[in-house]
């Protein structure tokens, strides 16, 4: 590690979906410095036209993910020392998404696929009914709990080689959301979910390469969630429902 240098050599992607190139900057090195700090320093001190996206800065909002030295990371919680190679860092827009400008990607395809995977609540009761009591020890609740810390950062989507090769594939985040809802006792849309994840872009396209689970900044396991959907849809297939 060569983070003792006074300055970092940083390459930042400049351009849009049609064309672009990496532009080099020298950024003062600090003892405690995140990738987002580096990007912000460039925008504030070298080029105010640099476009990027962030909000909370504490790993909650999921808006600042970028490619850092070729791998997807949440930049507000990634220390420079973790990513630095030979005192150099390359920072680019998230993979597998259209680039709006510089480091800002168009997240529409990512969230459209959440909707396509039925990643929304399907109510089982009306406001007039009593609230359903849920046993936190219940196996399906435990399974649902595994995916609820997803912050929609799209790191898993950018890490996925199947998404890269298959435009229709719903991707790890949307499928994990579908699996979470499938296991939620308060969700009445189990069959809708299975149907949504059984189409041509569904869970069966996953090759179980595990990039999603490897890079998830919250240590979630979308690959296991997708395996759960495969099992559930296979059982449903044998029961003749699909």
């Amino acid at each position: 590690m060569s983070s003792d240098a006074d300055e970092l050599e940083v390459s930042v992607w400049r351009g849009d979906n049609a064309s672009g190139r990496f532009e080099d900057f020298r950024v003062p090195a600090q003892e405690n410095q995140t990738i987002l700090d580096v990007v912000s320093w460039i925008q504030q001190h070298r080029d105010p036209t640099l476009s990027y996206r962030y909000a909370c800065r504490v790993g909650m909002c999921g808006s600042c993910a970028m490619m850092v030295n070729g791998v997807p990371r949440w930049t507000c919680r990634t220390h420079v020392k973790v990513a630095l190679k030979d005192n150099r860092i390359s920072i680019g827009p998230l993979r597998n998404l259209p680039v709006i400008k510089d480091l800002a990607t168009d997240m529409d395809p990512f969230f459209d696929k959440w909707v396509a995977a039925e990643g929304m609540h399907h109510p089982s009761r009306t406001r007039d009914d009593a609230i359903e009591q849920i046993n936190p020890e219940d196996a399906s609740r435990q399974e649902a709990n595994k995916g609820i810390e997803c912050i929609n950062c799209s790191v898993c989507y950018a890490a996925c080689d199947t998404v890269a090769g298959n435009d229709d594939y719903l991707g790890p985040a949307a499928l994990q959301r579908a699996w979470t809802l499938y296991n939620d006792a308060k969700d009445a849309g189990k069959l809708n979910i299975l149907e949504a994840v059984s189409g041509k872009g569904g869970c069966h396209n996953c090759h179980s390469q595990g990039g999603c689970s490897h890079y998830c900044p919250n240590d979630l396991n979308p690959m296991a969630a997708i395996a759960g959907l495969k099992r559930a849809s296979a059982l449903s297939f044998f029961k003749g429902r699909k």
Partner: peptide, 12 residues
């Protein structure tokens, strides 16, 4: 590009 039908056919 795999539906559940094709997936099951391949596994079976």
């Amino acid at each position: 590009m795999l539906t559940v039908r094709l997936y099951m056919l391949q596994r079976i």
